[in-house]
């Protein structure tokens, strides 16, 4: 547990390192709206953006095919690119893909690899800061979602989730519950109850 802090608020007893914290003199301050656990000196952002990192799994939408390079919309200020020669299936504008970031170039464009087209299915976007909670510790939450809804779920760290088959409505309801209640304890148990229809 902890207390909610806003940008510019002092973090007493903070002694680690975090992209979401800055120092002025010998004091630490939060850059974001987050939950601060002063006992453990830990700040968890409630709202946060996604910065592309090597190895991130993402879901994107093909924007255009230009000279054998696909440009991909990633729900972020930076685009992805994928070489068509490394992709088995030809892609078209509007196609939804899953991919892994192989490299990030100088202009912060993400070079994509292991590109896979996602057919059918629906995508929803959530704040990227909620993705870790949707996955859960050791993927417990996402496994529970798949089991409870019989949906195929692909989760992009860029805040895009692809849902196919199974009980879409239940999956979406559970995901929005996780997003809204991400900062509360006992969530795994409540999502389990929702999926089992006990509410």
């Amino acid at each position: 547990m902890g207390t909610i802090v806003v940008p510019g608020e002092v973090l007493e007893r903070f002694n680690g390192r975090s992209d979401n914290v800055f120092f002025d003199g010998n004091k630490a301050y939060s850059k974001v709206l987050g939950i601060y656990d002063s006992e453990r000196g830990m700040l968890t952002p409630l709202e946060g953006l996604w910065y592309p990192r090597m190895g991130d799994t993402v879901i994107g939408i093909v924007e255009e095919d230009k000279f054998n390079i696909y440009t991909v919309y990633l729900n972020a200020p930076y685009k992805g690119i994928a070489m068509s020669k490394f992709i088995e299936e030809p892609l078209a504008a509007g196609d939804i893909i899953e991919a892994v970031i192989k490299d990030i170039d100088r202009t912060k464009t993400a070079v994509l690899t292991r590109v896979r087209k996602l057919n059918g299915g629906k995508i929803i976007s959530v704040k990227p800061s909620k993705i870790p909670r949707i996955m859960g510790h050791g993927d417990t939450m996402i496994k529970q979602l798949v089991q409870g809804t019989k949906c195929t779920l692909v989760v992009g760290l860029n805040g895009v989730i692809w849902i196919s088959g199974g009980n879409y409505d239940l999956a979406a309801e559970a995901i929005f519950k996780i997003v809204e209640e991400a900062h509360t304890p006992g969530l795994t148990e409540r999502v389990k109850e929702l999926l089992e229809g006990k509410k």
Binding site: V6, P7, G8, Y29, K31, V32
Partner: peptide, 11 residues
């Protein structure tokens, strides 16, 4: 701004 998650040094 703060509710969007964009990092800020002050409010």
């Amino acid at each position: 701004f703060a509710s969007s998650g964009i990092p800020m040094l002050d409010l």
